[in-house]
Structures are given as structure tokens and as C-alpha cells.
Write a protein that binds this DNA or RNA. Structure first.
Lengths: 183, 183
DNA sequence: CGGAAACTTGATCGAATTCAAATAAGGTGG
DNA sequence: CCACCTTATTTGAATTCGATCAAGTTTCCG
């Protein structure tokens, strides 16, 4: 029987795949994330997972986790919080894809990832590990890789961010924020 | 303290609102639906609810529900299933908005609603109550009302569906299915 | 050094938006 | 039941954002 996985180190992502082979990335998994909270509650999930970097994960027995969640109210509370966060992220994603421009989607993705890494103390002077290829960004934002390249070029040229190897530096967070939330 | 609501009769929808006032509909609530399972787990949810028709709902105490979910393993199982369904729907929505055309999004929305109503035995010969304005469809599919009108016109003209008053009839489900899943 | 994958850039195309106006549908008070 | 008013829907024309197509470049590695 399949257990529930929690990422300890490295990046991964969850995605769904379309009949024609294109894919939609549903979420990125950073160290400490459940490989979907849904996996705890239900054995079968209709999505696929893929590693972005070398990943180290822990594998727990689903039954044990459920017992743990049900018996300890502190754990239940924490787990609920986690579900809620995931849910909010999904809602944010729907709103981004439904109602925001390419620039906004890319800006928001970068800021969201930075915020999550910040919580994990993995950002130094606006710089953080960034193992995504532009294809991944395209699949997460519902754009084409070509257009992602153009957006990145524009952001770079405007001095908002810089990419070097597998690391990204946000040079002008305020401006990215502004773009994210302009109407 | 705010309780958890379950729709007994009528339609409602959950949505988020953008700084400029546009909105993104996140889900439709049909009779029997929780007003978001998330509301059970966490008191605060960052989304708004609005009724589409006259709605009748039951209001439960959150603490009671949590106790019930935690103490009874059958209930826990059912609740987990519900969370999972919601989650899958959100994922489907992300995929639709990120990767599918206007025609596909509209076709899929109609089919998804029909399927949910079918489970509730509220479809007769392809016809069912349909209280949505085109604005709602637009807000759910990330389109403009104008474009929704065009898509509907095309579907109607192709004999796939018919709208009369607050009721919709799917006349050619197979064709809608085909459009939904064409590459 | 060579080859493959990733990224960039330009030109063109197309789906959906925007703007604007006309028509239809619904609901209300007389 | 009808005239009137408001809210929805339809339709057309012009525009725009992002996609697609097609070469280049760069980067990364063995």
C-alpha cells in the first residue's frame, strides 16, 4: 500500500495532464510540504507528481497519520490549517488564471514562491534557489514558454529580477508587487 | 460565532474579488453542498458567498461538526471524501482556466453542473434548472459576458443546447463532450 | 570540443476583449 | 393586460494579448 509522502529536501510539483500531452502544474512542493494533504485523507488522487531537483522525502503510513490527526486535537488543528492553506492557494491560482494578465501571473508566482521560501529561511538578500525551467513556469501560469521568456526579459530589463544559474534574485520587490496587483 | 452552512435548497456560489471589482467564481453550491468544506476546518475563509436563487440552508455549530468528524470514523471517511471532491474540482478548474479554450470551458461547466444535478436527480430529459446569468458563467470561466454570449449562440445554433427562461436543455451531450475533450 | 536542451527574438496569426449600439426579456405599477 | 423601465443578451467592428512558427543564440555537460 502506498504511503503519504512529505518532502524533506528539494523541489517537486503536482500536475495534471491533458489528452494532448500538455500539462497544467497545480502546485509546487517545497521542503516540508505534504505531497498534497489530500493524499492523507484519500488514497487515490488523480494527479501526478514529479521531482524538480533531487528530492528526499519521508513516507508515512496513511492509517497512522489519520489516527494521529483524529486523536490529537492539536494535530487536527494543524492539519486543518494546512488543508486550508492549500485550498486558498488553489483559489488564488484559479483567480490568477481566470482574471489576470501574463505579467501579473508570472510576477505573482515568483512572489508567492519567494514568500514560501522566506518562511523556510531560504532567501538571502532577495536571492533563492530557483530550479524551474521556463517550461514549468509556463505550465503553472497557463502560458507558452515563448511568452514566459518575453515576460522574464521584460522584468529583467526593468531591473526587477535577475537569474543566474539555478538561482533567482528579486531586485525590486515593490515593483513586482505593484504589477501583481495593478488593475 | 459564525456557524457552518449547508445548502438545503437553491443555488449559491463562492467567489473572490479583485481590487478592480471584477470577480472570479470559485465554485457553485447546489442543494446538499457544504458552503465550503474548508469552513468546517477553519473559521476564517477568504472568500465570499452569494445566493443565486432563494436559498434555504442549515447552520451547524463548527465545534460540534469537528467533534463529530473526529469521533466517528464513518463520518471522518465521508468528510475526507468531500474534501477530496472539492479539491479535485478546484484542480479541474485550474486546468480548464490554464489550458482550455473558451468553448471547452463553457461546455465543461455545463456538463459538470449537469452531472452534479444528475446525482441529485434534478435532470429530466437533459433539462434542468439553470439560474445562472451569462455574467456568472463569464466569472466562472474567466471570460467576458460578451464572449460567453457568442459561445452560447454557437452552441445553440449547432443544436447542442437550448435555454428557456431559467431552464437549460442539453440536446446533444455527446457533441458537448467531444468539444470538451478535443485537443 | 561537440551536441542537446533551454532560451531568445522577430514576424505573423488568431482567440478573446473592448467598445458601442441595438434588441430582447422581465418585472412593476397603473 | 399593457406601457414603461431596467437588466440581459446579441451583434458588429476594431483592437490587443498571447500563441504559433521559425530561426538564431546561449548554456550546460559529457
Amino acid at each position: 500500500m502506498q504511503g503519504v509522502k512529505i518532502v524533506c529536501r528539494g523541489w517537486a510539483f503536482a500536475f495534471s495532464i491533458l489528452p494532448d500531452g500538455r500539462r497544467q502544474i497545480l502546485s509546487f512542493l517545497l521542503p516540508g510540504d505534504f505531497a498534497s494533504t489530500a493524499a492523507v485523507l484519500n488514497e487515490r488522487v488523480g494527479i501526478s507528481l514529479q521531482a524538480l531537483t533531487e528530492v528526499c522525502y519521508c513516507d508515512y503510513d496513511r492509517g497512522d497519520l489519520i489516527d494521529c490527526v483524529r486523536s490529537d486535537s492539536k494535530v487536527f488543528e494543524k492539519f486543518s490549517e494546512l488543508c486550508n492553506t492549500e485550498r486558498n492557494e488553489a483559489n488564488e491560482m484559479v483567480t490568477d488564471l481566470g482574471r489576470r494578465t501574463a505579467n501579473q501571473r508570472v510576477a505573482r508566482l515568483i512572489l508567492a514562491l519567494m514568500a514560501r521560501l522566506q518562511e523556510r529561511n531560504q532567501v538571502r538578500d532577495g536571492s533563492f534557489e530557483f530550479p524551474l525551467r521556463q517550461q514549468h513556469i509556463a505550465d503553472a501560469t497557463g502560458l507558452t514558454p515563448v511568452h514566459v521568456s518575453r515576460v522574464f526579459s521584460a522584468f529583467r530589463q526593468a531591473g526587477m529580477l535577475a537569474v543566474k544559474g539555478r538561482s533567482l534574485t528579486v531586485q525590486n520587490e515593490a515593483e513586482l508587487q505593484r504589477i501583481s496587483s495593478e488593475r
